[in-house]
Design a protein around this nucleic acid. Structure first.
Lengths: 239, 239
DNA sequence: CGCTCAATTGAATGAGCTCAAATCTCGTGG
DNA sequence: CCACGAGATTTGAGCTCATTCAATTGAGCG
């Protein structure tokens, strides 16, 4: 029976955990900080003081450049650890912000240390980090090589797969609590164009959006269309 | 006096090393494998067996997509470790190839283990890995948000800075042993356009290229023009 | 010298951007 | 309960940056 604690459920996707380990994690899974949408969790230039785990909602890594443009470099979904690695650095070279309302768990360095004394937990966190890196490589491919419509399709497929891991997507349907501006800043295109490409995907009958609810009407076709291959997420079943 | 061993010199940029540690590293710095240009060091799908260190020449991480397009996701310059982290994964989700002729050092897992038993070496490798991640984030910003000419400028500034660390760039001049096709595949544009933007940078009197020799004629102006800020490389002097 | 690969240039086309305005949604206060 | 306002979505028109296709020139090598 999968844990109702998404942090645990996510880690278990990478490495099996004993009951003792799960209890340890669960004991440190409180309190949760409620963060409103579009709010910084850490700002660029800050000295990181703790590790953040997203328990509900979507957050992101981002950078701003002079011209007022923003690039989102990663999505953090429920169960995801924000900065297991990065918090070693003296100063953040990028910001982390919520996209939707989020529940965030804050782990002190001591707590993280206590957790990582269990090799299984350390290993799971390590893997999660490798997958984050791998995901970033895939984003580079996505932005660098694919036309706009497929870029969006690819991202939607990735989110579907990642939400399935923690049980937040059922029947190719999930809540996507981000604006089209966020999508545009993620994929390196303008909002106007993101909107048009989304419409285009709808016309192709690949997806359907109702408020914040996304229905992928034909997942296989969308994956093929977008060149999506889940290998880079290094899931258990994967080759 | 900086070491003549570029692997050591690079690591020392991240963490001071004792003589004993440097001797250990140096003892394992042979033999060097000579690899011709445009040749795979590891292919996507391969099971990684050892860690590679580039001693001379340029190598890259890349992925191919169906349509025959290629995205280069990282450059590995002399002193850089290719896959300190990635080699934990069961299968490579991307390839590593030479761009120019390279001298490559191959470290067995046991050798890496022996090295990382020294905390200073482990720490330096760890930092190098964090910087690689950070660099990838910056590339995402570069490709996602900057127009083509500035993208090229930014990359040239980054390479300048990274080569200066290991003493391979003098007076804003260095050897850039890659083709324009490689640049294009790195920055998500066509060769034709890369060529034109390079010409444009030349006309602005920012750079000069003679065969494989790049002269940055006004580094400050090129950095400003390209929005280059070396923070993300987390150098010693940096804030 | 002839070959192959890299660099360069031209012309036409197209994907994606800018600017602008209209419509829609939804939370808030009266 | 409704009106208002801010932010989000949608649509149109014109323009630009970048691509495609094609051909030429240049450089290095056996």
């Amino acid at each position: 029976m999968p844990s109702s604690n998404l942090f645990i459920r996510k880690l278990e996707a990478f490495h099996p955990l004993s009951n003792e380990e799960k209890e340890l994690l669960d004991r440190h899974s409180r309190p949760l900080r409620e963060v409103p949408p579009k709010q910084d969790i850490i700002r660029e230039g800050d000295k990181p003081a703790c590790v953040h785990v997203i328990i509900s909602g979507f957050a992101c890594r981002y950078k701003l450049i002079k011209e007022g443009r923003r690039q989102i470099m990663a999505y953090m979904l429920p169960g995801d650890t924000c900065d297991f690695n990065v918090f070693i650095l003296k100063r953040m070279d990028h910001g982390i912000a919520t996209l939707s309302r989020c529940q965030v768990l804050e782990l002190s360095p001591e707590t993280v240390l206590e957790m990582t004394e269990h090799p299984a937990i350390a290993r799971a966190l390590w893997w999660a980090n490798l997958v984050d890196e791998s995901t970033m490589r895939e984003w580079l491919v996505n932005i660098g090589q694919r036309p706009a419509e497929q870029r969006i399709g690819h991202l939607l497929c990735e989110i579907l797969t990642r939400l399935e891991i923690v049980g937040l997507a059922k029947e190719n349907t999930y809540t996507l609590p981000v604006t089209q501006t966020d999508l545009a800043d993620t994929l390196g295109m303008t909002v106007v164009h993101a909107n048009r490409m989304l419409t285009s995907l709808r016309i192709r009958d690949l997806i359907d959006i109702d408020a914040r609810n996304l229905i992928i009407k034909d997942a296989e076709r969308l994956k093929a269309f977008s060149g999506f291959n889940p290998n880079y997420l290094h899931l258990k079943g994967g080759s």
